[in-house]
């Protein structure tokens, strides 16, 4: 579904990524761990095609310029603060896949605790609600590949569990997810494969069964930031 080959990135003279290889198969969740500044966000931006790599290549099936099959969520929520919850969703659906997916909107908004706030401007929502709305857009997007940078950020335990359930549904339906997070417990719960970025290199790449949570915790604790 997504293949990253020998990805390198330098900011000025400073190397941020050094020959990273990774792949995300159809119906698979790949979780990327790493300390702050390890290069996770840069790798995700390169995978999504919004930042060019200095070297290496990114491949996914089909037209490489067609990004409508990808849902990318970075640190920002990509919402229009002046528009209401429903207006944000309607605009998102209008420019993505038409109106055919609006039928289950009420159910999805209710699942994410946003139905009661559907007519409120987004700027009036809490940070957690904004994050939930941003993630909800992904779930109704019809995308096949989800690239998510710290999706659990700002969510309390209830919504983390809801989100994890939804990620599992996406995987079951053949979708692929590339997720960067520093939350080892949540990441290990959902991952099929795990990667650990250390100083811009993939230091650790394992199936979930072989990558114990404790080992990753230990690696992250002991990692010396560059």
């Amino acid at each position: 579904m997504l293949r990253l080959t020998d990805i390198g990135k330098t900011y000025g003279l400073r190397p941020v990524l050094k020959g990273v290889n990774a792949r995300v198969e159809k119906g698979e969740i790949f979780v990327l761990f790493g300390h702050n500044g390890a290069g996770k966000t840069t790798l995700l931006k390169i995978a999504a095609g919004i930042m060019p790599p200095t070297k290496g290549k990114v491949e996914f099936p089909g037209n490489q310029d067609d990004r409508s099959r990808i849902f990318y969520l970075g640190h920002r929520n990509s919402l229009y603060g002046e528009l209401t919850v429903l207006e944000n969703i309607r605009f998102f659906l209008d420019i993505r896949n038409g109106k055919e997916r609006t039928t289950n909107l009420r159910e999805t908004l209710t699942d994410f605790g946003l139905w009661q706030r559907r007519n409120d401007p987004v700027k009036a929502l809490s940070q957690g609600m904004k994050r939930r709305l941003a993630l909800m857009k992904g779930l109704i997007s019809g995308a096949g590949l989800f690239i998510l940078d710290e999706p659990f950020s700002g969510l309390d335990i209830r919504w983390k569990d809801t989100l994890i359930e939804r990620f599992m549904e996406i995987r079951k339906n053949g979708g692929s997810l590339l997720i960067a997070t520093h939350l080892v417990h949540e990441g290990c719960r959902i991952a099929d494969r795990i990667g650990l970025l250390e100083n811009g290199a993939m230091a650790f790449l394992e199936e979930r069964e072989r990558a114990a949570e404790a080992i990753i915790q230990e690696r992250l604790k002991n990692e010396i930031c560059r």
């Binding site: 919004i50 409508s68 929520n77 990509s78 605009f91 420019i95 993505r96 896949n97």
Partner: peptide, 12 residues
């Protein structure tokens, strides 16, 4: 603001 242009980049 809030990276809203990403909606456009990852769309049709």
């Amino acid at each position: 603001d809030d990276g809203a242009y990403l909606n456009i980049l990852f769309s049709t």
